[in-house]
Nucleic acid binder design. Structure first.
Length: 803
DNA sequence: CTTTTCTGCTTACCT
DNA sequence: ACAGGTAAGCAGAAAAGC
């Protein structure tokens, strides 16, 4: 191979992994060249390492010698250096131990821990490939310019060009504003598996159809011949190879499609070589499947954050986002697939169904990927992992990067069982209908508290440390103290986040809101906000590396004190406070007084507060965290009530929403009562679609692990008995059937019950009536009146009566 | 012995 | 596997009523 001359390569970093060449690890940077080529950049000089924190009982050099003696030929210890670092803000001297084989780090960690004189072993659990991009300060999805030498593309790699890194690698600053997804090849796919009323088994149930689509291209369908699916899977592998996508999107493929395909391919003896290296997809971090050289993104991970959609099927999510409306597509349930396959007259419908699923998946990708790409380059996790990882881990990976830059050692994850601590204040609402109410909100209250009072594990004054009152901030109630200077780990990071976000938001103003530039910046600022807002909860998370209970406790204490002060001031101004929760205040919308309150909070307390929305009317019962508001633009906000809960039947939810809407918009209680009575009548006449009677509840553990008997657990057990796998996290949809005895004996999975079996009276008494009454009760409506006869009154009458 | 009240378990929501 | 605060239903136990 020629080309030993060093050249500059401009490429976008997509993913990172490593391979062993003999006993030497080689980092693989997967990327896209500026010319559209797909490239790999190898780097064989990077070595795994970890730190050893001494406890002081043994001299550092002596400890180093002891560690060197642990060296084994399979992965020799290459060096043990004395280094100066910081650990939770304190200067420390530590040993940096470097070895050869990444997989050996774990064993060395255990061996070193057993030595005398060792306080702890640190950073031994950072995956090697991530370690590399952290140390080289590389962020996925960003563009870099690297000094490289071209090499032959090694056997088994399907990329256009391969290089080795021979010098510097630095961010290409000319491309910071560029859309990271522009020019990337995205492929959506979905599989259909033969099944009839039971969970398919990859050992025998074939993959009958695979649908796939390259962004901008046609939807293709590969079909089995009768029940023989070997060609389908082989054909799929071929199509993936020829499309050569950078991003593969699916819906729930990490939990279903990939494991099924992997197992099925094994059974059939097909090589599932869909990656850019000849290895099959493998389970990776955070339950995600890793496809070498491609970003395998499960869009369900994004959907998990759409809290408005309760049952997160592809159909529901696509419908909610307006990608593919349910009414405009074929809908089938998973257990019908087999039937639609077997019946030649129905097979075309099955094809159409698969097309609609692939179309929906691609549509969701367009909605979700821009945010994912930004979150990836803010958190530093590759796109395929960042959405699979939970909020805590996304922030933590960014913290680890900041620590590396600051010379801070990363604390270990340790098992803790900590007691609870006090959180925020929730005011008792004033029940009833209130007119013209302004909702005031503190902007990012907790992150701002952390910045203002320099809260963090490294600035926390620990027992035995003495500081003057002037040198520290003291949290109210709990008394925890934090050094005013120097600025702590969290303060530095949060300030950077906050100023970065401010800068992006001012940049956004230069672009029209519907421009691609604006949208890109908006996704970026959302990603930054997400991480900033997670910082408080992170500190209170016992699994966090930078766990700090006192810090979290202090933040909520300051929060309580700030909102109490604001409430007191509102009182002094003669502003009636109707309700408040954590960082919000509902007050009478008296613009002049509201303005004075805002100025007080900004000037005297040093926090940002703004009018988030104004309600023309808002209704409270005695309950906290529940209200219904009518906004100035005529929208109904239901908060907390049954209407927004996923574990009530659609019928009850719809009824309650309507009741709230009628009462707030027209003030006519009678009209609302009539509405409810009408619903009950329809229900009793059997005119309500059974799907509206399904109650969905999440199974949080295996059915046998429950202490208390419950309807959804009964339903789950019935499913298991029928050969349908149910796993923790699954939403169980059930209906209540006729009969006597406790409810849990009468629950059935909705697809195993007939309409005739449904206990209509349960839905009247325990769903529709209670949901409606939750609101109407306040206006004197009784259960009897909803179910039988009664008298009339209006909201106006009621309000007059109240005065 | 029956009815009412209390408590624990459970889920899902709000900020 | 970010936090605490809160509402609410159901099952079953405990307490109260008879």
């Amino acid at each position: 191979m020629k080309g030993s001359d060093a050249t500059l390569l401009s490429f976008q970093l997509l993913d990172v992994s490593y391979e062993m060449r003999g006993s030497t690890p080689v980092i693989i940077l997967w990327g896209r060249g500026a010319d559209g080529s797909r490239v790999v950049v190898f780097y064989g000089e990077f070595r795994p390492y970890f730190y050893v924190l001494p406890d002081g009982s043994v001299g550092l050099d002596q400890l180093a010698a002891m560690i060197r003696r642990l060296s084994r030929p399979s992965s020799p210890i290459l060096s043990v250096e004395r280094v100066r670092r910081r650990f939770i803000g304190r200067e420390v001297e530590a040993l940096k131990v470097t070895t050869l084989v990444p997989a050996s780090v774990r064993e060395y960690r255990e061996a070193v821990r057993r030595l005398g004189g060792v306080r702890d072993v640190l950073e031994a659990d950072i995956p090697f490939a991530l370690r590399f991009i952290i140390d080289f300060n590389l962020y996925p999805m960003r563009w870099y310019v690297a000094e490289v030498r071209e090499v032959a593309v090694p056997h088994g790699y399907s990329v256009d060009r391969a290089y080795t890194l021979s010098g510097d690698i630095r961010e290409d600053e000319t491309r910071i504003q560029e859309d990271p997804l522009k020019g990337l090849r995205v492929m959506a796919f979905d599989i259909e598996v033969y099944s009839k009323m039971r969970t398919p088994d990859p050992k025998k149930d074939p993959v009958i159809m695979i649908g796939l689509q390259q962004a901008g291209g046609e939807i293709e369908i590969l079909e089995a011949e009768d029940r023989s699916d070997k060609k389908v899977i082989a054909g799929f592998v071929e199509r993936v190879k020829s499309i050569d996508p950078d991003v593969i999107v699916g819906y729930n493929q990490n939990r279903f499609d990939w494991p099924y395909l992997v197992e099925r391919a094994r059974v059939l003896g097909v090589k599932l070589a869909v990656g850019r290296r000849s290895v099959e997809p493998q389970p990776g971090l955070y339950g995600h499947y890793s496809v070498s050289g491609r970003l395998n993104v499960d869009l369900l991970d994004f959907a998990e954050e759409l809290h408005e959609v309760k049952v997160k099927t592809l159909e529901e999510v696509a419908d909610y986002l307006g990608v593919v409306k349910i009414g405009e597509r074929v809908t089938l349930e998973w257990w019908q697939i087999g039937e639609y396959w077997d019946d030649p007259s129905k097979r075309e419908i099955l094809r159409k169904y698969l097309r609609d699923d692939v179309r929906s998946t691609m549509g969701l990708a367009e909605k979700f990927l821009p945010f994912g790409a930004e979150l990836s380059q803010v958190s530093g996790l590759p796109l395929d992992q960042v959405m699979a990882a939970s909020v805590g881990f996304r922030l933590e990976w960014r913290l680890i990067r900041e620590a590396a830059k600051l010379g801070e050692l990363v604390p270990n994850r340790v098992e803790r069982s900590e007691g609870r601590y006090a959180g925020a204040i929730v005011l008792r609402p004033k029940p009833g209908v209130h007119e013209d109410i302004a909702v005031l909100d503190f902007a990012s209250m907790y992150p701002n508290i952390m910045v203002k009072y320099n809260v963090g594990p490294d600035t926390l004054v620990r027992p035995g440390e003495e500081y003057g009152e002037e040198e520290v901030y003291t949290a109210p109630e709990v008394g925890h103290k934090f050094r005013k200077s120097p600025p702590g780990f969290f303060k530095k990071i949060l300030e950077r986040f906050l100023s970065w976000r401010r800068q992006i938001r001012s940049e956004m103003k230069k672009h029209p809101p519907d421009s691609p530039e604006y949208k890109l910046l908006d996704e970026r600022q959302k990603a930054i906000k997400l991480l900033a807002n997670a910082s408080y909860g992170y500190m209170g998370w016992p699994h966090a590396r930078w766990y700090c209970r006192e810090c979290a406790e202090a933040v909520t204490a300051w929060g309580r004190s700030i909102i109490r002060t604001a409430i007191r001031k509102a009182g002094e101004l003669g502003l009636e406070v109707i309700y408040g929760d954590t960082d919000s205040l509902f007050v009478k919308n008296d613009p002049e007084k509201v303005e004075r309150l805002i100025r007080f909070v900004e000037e005297e307390l040093g926090f940002d507060i703004k009018v988030d929305k104004v309600y023309r009317r808002v209704f409270f019962t005695e309950a906290k965290k529940r209200y219904v508001g009518l906004t100035v633009d005529g929208k109904i906000d239901v908060v907390g009530f049954e209407a927004v809960r996923g574990d009530w039947s659609e019928l009850a939810k719809e009824t309650q929403f309507k009741v709230a809407e009628i009462v707030l918009k027209t003030g006519s209680v009678d009209e609302a009562v009539d509405y409810v009575r009408n619903i009950i009548e329809k229900l009793r006449r059997g005119q309500v679609d059974m799907r509206k009677l399904v109650i969905w509840k999440t199974l949080t553990r295996p059915p046998s692990m429950y202490e208390a008997r419950q309807p959804h657990v009964t339903a789950a057990l019935l499913m298991e008995r029928a050969g349908i796998k149910v796993e923790p996290g699954a939403k169980i949809g059930y209906v209540v059937t006729k009969g006597s005895g406790p409810l849990y004996t009468r629950a059935k999975p909705y697809f195993m019950a007939s309409k005739e079996e449904v206990d209509v009276e349960y839905y009247v008494d325990k769903q529709v009536v209670p949901a409606a009454l939750r609101i109407l009760q306040y206006f004197g409506v009784t259960e009897k009146r909803l179910k039988g006869g009664g008298r009339q009154s209006t909201l106006l009458d009621f309000m007059r009566r109240g005065k």
